[in-house]
Amino acid sequence: MSTLTSDDYVIRAIRPDEWTAVKQLRLDALRDPVAHLAFLETFENAQSQPDGFWQDRAKGSGEGSTSAQQFVAETADGSWAGTVTVLIEEAGTTDWAGAPVEQRQGHVVGVFVRPEHRGNGLIKSLFDAGVAWAWKQRAERVRLLVHEDNARAQGAYRKIGFAPSGVSVPLASDEAQNELEFVLMP
């Protein structure tokens, strides 16, 4: 896989042996003030997972995987400024919410940019890498779900080129609240 670079970041797929960094970035993301709107997982649940969980997660979405790929933005000092993961969903299967998947698609999850790196275009660079990977995997579209109250994320996704599809998914934890599907077509 080719590496995208800029003056401040290298955008690249994680390596399976980087599971401790994957775990730390996820725990940091789950401490974000809007984590309750952005993630279906809690900090407490993630923190309680054994090392094997994180090792499997990094292996399953690491460099070379064709079913999922996690991208990070690495700074000059080697720290990770943000991440995006893209899962491939196959036509004829059901998604995490039990809805039928009608076409091969990329599903963006786990979007996080550290607060000190927001607002500078980094999220677009992360998405560019993730979406390019999904197209390489023959995805017919790329989608993501965003909480109806997460206006900041919705604005960022629109700016990148995603548009609301009109599909709304009730949250299992609170059926009065919804996740909105945004899509990007090739």
Rank of each mutant, 00 (worst) to 15 (best):
A29M: 04
L37Y: 10
A38H: 02
L40A: 14
T42C: 02
E44D: 14
E44I: 01
E44G: 01
N45D: 11
S48W: 00
D51Y: 05
D51C: 06
D51T: 12
G52Y: 01
D56L: 11
R57K: 15
S61R: 08
S61N: 10
G64P: 11
G64V: 11
G64L: 13
T66M: 09
A68E: 08
Q69V: 13
Q69P: 02
F71A: 11
V72R: 06
T75P: 05
A76K: 12
A76H: 05
D77G: 11
D77V: 12
D77L: 05
A81Y: 05
G82V: 09
T85F: 01
I88D: 04
I88R: 10
E89M: 10
E89C: 02
E89F: 14
E90F: 03
E90V: 12
A91C: 08
A91S: 14
G92D: 07
G92R: 04
G92I: 06
T94V: 15
W96L: 14
G98D: 04
P100Y: 03
P100H: 04
Q103M: 13
R104M: 04
Q105F: 07
G106V: 06
G106T: 04
H107D: 10
H107Q: 12
V108N: 02
V108T: 03
V108H: 02
G110F: 04
V111E: 09
F112H: 13
R114L: 14
E116L: 12
N120Q: 15
G121I: 03
G121P: 10
L122K: 02
L122P: 03
L122D: 07
K124S: 14
L126Y: 06
L126S: 03
F127D: 05
F127M: 15
G130I: 13
G130V: 12
G130E: 09
A132H: 06
A134D: 04
A134T: 06
A139V: 02
R141W: 00
V142A: 07
L144E: 07
V146G: 01
E148M: 06
E148Y: 01
D149W: 07
D149V: 09
R152W: 03
A153Y: 00
A153Q: 01
Y157P: 01
K159M: 06
F162E: 06
A163M: 10
A163G: 03
S165E: 09
S165F: 08
G166E: 05
V167K: 14
P170I: 05
P170E: 00
P170Y: 02
A172N: 01
E175H: 13
